[in-house]
Nucleic acid binder design. Structure first.
Lengths: 340, 340
DNA sequence: GAAATTCGCTAAACCGATTTAGCATCCCTG
DNA sequence: CAGGGATGCTAAATCGGTTTAGCGAATTTC
């Protein structure tokens, strides 16, 4: 028999459908003996629940969603999402929850997807990434009453659960390291200014500057593209007084920056130290290999999955879990500044 | 009223549930006037179908699956999947079909996922990538009677539909270009030998060699990693007589190879020309920028989605659609060989 | 102009699970 | 040994759609 249903099992076991349902879901209502017998029959008929039927009956679909609002072009190079995805899956698969992934162009489209998913009952909850300063998604999700967990930022004033790493501490560890090497002119090529994490990193640099005796510590925002990363680097290195170290908010921009330095005859790390705020195979492929901040993105995803499942189970839960701190992996692109 | 159902619409319109279902799905059984009225009421109550209910009734879930069997670590850098994903979505969203994505470790796990998806009725069909020589997935899917489309290879002897680009022609265009520049010693750093496309590319090089008067044209297989790409390059460049051009089966390996050339003092493109069989932002970030073969992966995905929908609609369909040929984008890493 | 066909719709069955109400039966209690 | 409460199970309702059988009225056919 192809695709047996619980009725088939019930017939075979000589009990009612209800009893089978109780047995298979491990809830009271059947004796241990009967339960064992039903379980065995189900196993031997290789029965599996029909997801739609279960979703309809139990009004939960055992599926969560992730929407990424970025142009596909920029997505591929970043291992961030691949790792996040794997981590999420790892956290979800333990509970047999599946993951819906959608790539859209912008936040408006993203909210539209949430609306649709909610009204069509396609997901039990969602994961939010790339939190912006006044993020409209928070309010939209609250209205939809769709369980959610925010990755890499706080979920508004106590509204949403979140899983985050300390961007501030991470940035401080980079700047402090550079200062310890003797650098006093450190520039920061940042990402899009409307991202919360960009803001936190910029603030961290600004706050640390006086304490570390930095002469100049400008943060220049970009759109995260290699083009703007290169252009900003070119501008920085064209100044009369150059920075002796540059921190990039992404590995792609750091690589682009390295290219500009080479093209301008600025030696790395001799004349310029480079640090990437994000690690990947990219930084290791370079010559010199780039010093970078490594985050455990997989673990990030795993924890986000767990928190989301908690929120789905009890929507009143508000967890704000801080994950392991990122660590600075020192490679060949950082050194003490040339004595000037 | 939150989440109206078709019964609510039926009440409001003064007709039966059946009539509403007919109207909303555009099938005969209601007059145009009634249909228009029902549609308007549905719109104004902002009704959306409950996906589980529809799946249960119509025994189709409006969802297709993609399983990627690769370690997550190697996934991120390749824009291939991000583009493919976007293309797939673009092709699917027109028909309101959603996409399930799963990253697993190996093919065995992948087949297990198909089995589960099939028995739980979670997807209407699947997309296969990275076809190997004697691919066990083909047979498994046939057994499960799960509609499928193969990307980048033929679906066995008439078994599965497919969407593919001509790897052979693409490789020929690269080798012919290099030969035209004057290269006679061309090496090929290939990928995993069990992939069908690796085999096709190797054969293309071997077949073209005599015709183009190549002195030596070895294909060396790797695991697609940057490490093996680098190691293989080191071996090639350590020979008494070096190749004057190397073709890499992926952009990551090409970048790694470029690094080795620099480290060994071999100038590119002066002493060595480099071509990557796959394009991405990576190749453009390099100095020199790499000549690479560009494929329209987005379009690839879009077409695959369309073919899959055809197969789902009529499982007897066997389409073998050939997509646009890849084109060689010449950048700075190729030049005539130094006169020897 | 009677018979056959089409049209527009309703009522009810159905998809495969969950969940609730209720009914024996058995055990404990006083 | 009667009353009360678990225990183990059944029957039926339910979730929100789709699909089929059938019915009366209008239209076509010969």
């Amino acid at each position: 028999m192809a695709r047996p249903t619980i009725s088939d099992i019930a017939d075979r076991a000589g009990v009612s459908k209800g009893a089978v349902s109780f047995a298979l879901n491990g809830r009271p209502g059947v004796s241990d003996a009967t339960r064992a017998r039903i379980l065995q029959i189900a196993e031997q008929m290789s029965w599996r629940p029909h997801s739609a039927a279960r979703a309809l009956g139990a009004s939960r679909v055992d599926s969560v969603g992730l929407v990424i609002a970025r142009p596909a072009r920029t997505l591929g190079v970043e291992p961030f999402f691949a790792h996040l995805l794997s981590g999420l899956q790892s956290g979800l698969s333990a509970h047999a929850i599946s993951l819906q992934l959608l790539i859209v162009e912008d936040t408006a489209a993203e909210i539209e997807v949430y609306r649709r998913w909610s009204s069509e009952h396609r997901v039990d909850g969602v994961i939010l990434v790339d939190l912006t300063v006044k993020d409209p998604r928070i309010e939209a999700l609250r209205e939809l009453e769709l369980p959610a967990v925010v990755i890499g930022g706080r979920g508004g004033k106590g509204a949403l659960a979140s899983v985050w790493a300390d961007d501030r501490d991470a940035m401080l560890s980079i700047v402090e390291y550079l200062a310890a090497l003797g650098h006093r002119r450190i520039a920061h090529v940042a990402g899009t200014p409307n991202f919360q994490h960009t803001q936190r990193r910029i603030r961290a640099v600004r706050d640390a500057a006086p304490r570390l005796g930095l002469i100049d510590a400008p943060s220049l925002t970009t759109d995260f593209s290699d083009a703007e990363g290169a252009a900003t680097t070119r501008k920085l290195l064209s100044q009369a007084v150059r920075p002796t170290a540059i921190v990039y908010d992404s590995d792609v921009m750091a690589v682009a920056g390295l290219g500009v330095a080479m093209e301008m005859g600025v030696s790395v790390p001799g004349d310029l130290s480079i640090v990437a705020f994000d690690d990947s195979i990219l930084t290791q492929l370079m010559h010199p290999a780039l010093t970078a901040l490594s985050r455990d993105t997989f673990e990030f995803g795993r924890q986000a999955a767990e928190v989301l499942l908690e929120v789905i189970a009890d929507p009143a839960t508000v967890v704000n879990k801080r994950t392991a701190d990122p660590v600075l992996t020192v490679r060949e692109s950082t050194a003490p500044p040339a004595s000037s």
